[in-house]
Every structure is written in C-alpha cells, then in structure tokens.
Design a protein around this nucleic acid. Structure first.
Length: 225
DNA sequence: GACCAGGCACATC
DNA sequence: GATGTGCATGGT
C-alpha cells in the first residue's frame, strides 16, 4: 500500500486511491506470466488484441520446437514461424512482427537482450517504436516487464477504467494518459507492474459495456461507481 | 452466430 | 489529426 503525501482531505490522489483499492481487493497479481525476459518480449507481441490463453498455445508451440530463444527465432523462416503462431491469431502479421524484432535485436545488439536493456529508457523506447509492429503498448510492456524500466503501460482496459471512473478525459491519446498516471504515481517498477496487472484483472470483469457496472470493487473512487 | 480479446499499420478524408 | 479497415484464432 502506498500512502499519499498530501493526504489532507480535499486533494486525494485518485490514481493512488484506485491502486490501493485494487491491491486490497484482488491482492498481488505477480505479472508478467513468463519464464524469461525473452519470453516476455515475444508474449508482448503475440498478445496484441488477443486473449492470453491463445498466446499461451503459441508460446507452447515455440517451446516445443525449441525456438523460443534469440538465435533460433532469428534463423527460423517466417513461413514456418507463422505455422507455430497460428493459435495466437493474426499469425502472418505476428510472424512478420516477431521477425522484425529479431532482426533489430541482432543488428543493433548482436542478439543480446541484456545489451539492449543496458540502453537508457528514452533511447530504447524510441528504437522499439521504430520497429515494424511495435507500438506504444507493446514497447512499454517490453520495457516494464522484460527490461524493468519504470514506465506505465496503458492498454484498452486501463483506458476504459480510467475513463469510466472519470479519472481522464475519454478522448486523449496514449502518451497523455500515461503521463497523467505517472505524474500521480512515484516511479517504481514493482508498483507499475502490479498496477497494470490489477487494471487488467478488473477490466476482465468490470467496466465493460453496462453503464451501471454493478458490483464494482472500486465503489466510490472519485465519487463514481 | 454475434461479439470479444492485454494493437498496430496503413489508407483515406 | 481523426476515423475506418484488415489481420485470425478460440472462448462465451
């Protein structure tokens, strides 16, 4: 639990309040579900607009074929990779994106994730965004969960929850939402990881389509349930 | 059978 | 800059 610095009545940090309530209600989520940082990176690409259970099947295929490593994934033909990625959906797209990342990793860092993660945050974030198929959420997931950089990940769930509870304006962009959150939460890798995971946990069951969102564990955050 | 899932690139206006 | 569309499997 994080305590709010200026907790003197009128100015409550609603982002912090939300985090504390989620943590109390659900407990630690212990994300990202992966054995290695490399697996986090690949999972981040594969989970784009896709349920995690489908990603798990594709990851299992990669492990089965023993290609879930920097060398083998760089060598494997895109066509054959696509077959293994089939259960994750968009398999042709994701095969291309995975190969694009592998090309970058080898050309820029000799295939070494450790070397890549030695780069300063702004530089590496820019490099990741330049890779075909890696957008803001995928880049930030890689940075936070694989590289342990203190960046907050914004996704469809967090956007919906923040909007629904009136913590942000519904139409602002990714960077705007991200900076809004990060300006309210001290930079801490563990907290950022946990917060994002908790938002996904909540988003799977609430803040979806019904206006009432009955039974929401957040109750009165920002006066809105 | 419709709708959804831990996005992104690209075309068009 | 905003909006629309293709990409694809598997669960509810």
């Amino acid at each position: 639990m994080i305590s709010s610095p200026g907790h003197q009545g009128a100015h409550v940090n609603v982002f912090l309040e939300l985090y504390n309530r989620l943590l109390s209600h659900f407990g630690p989520q212990e994300w990202w579900p992966a054995d290695t940082p490399f697996e986090v990176v690949i999972g981040a690409i594969l989970t784009q607009n896709t349920s995690w259970t489908n990603v798990e099947r594709a990851i299992a295929n990669l492990k089965e074929e023993e290609v879930l490593n920097a060398e083998a994934l760089h060598e494997i033909p895109e066509r054959r990779l696509a077959v293994l990625l089939r259960p994750a959906g968009y398999f042709n797209v994701k095969a291309r994106r995975t190969k694009a990342f592998m090309s970058f990793l080898h050309e820029a860092y000799g295939g070494s994730l450790d070397a890549m993660f030695r780069q300063p945050l702004p530089r590496l974030r820019g490099q990741l965004l330049d890779i075909h198929g890696i957008g803001p959420e995928t880049a930030d997931s890689i940075l936070l969960y694989a590289g342990r950089y203190p960046v907050f990940v914004i996704d469809a769930y967090s956007t919906r929850i923040f909007t629904r509870h009136d913590l942000i304006d519904g139409r602002v962009g990714y960077r705007e939402i991200q900076s809004r959150v990060m300006s309210h939460i001290p930079p801490d890798v563990e907290v950022y990881q946990e917060y994002h995971a908790l938002l996904v946990r909540l988003g799977k069951i609430h803040c979806k389509r019904t206006p009432e969102c009955s039974g929401c564990p957040l109750g009165g955050v920002n006066g809105i349930s």
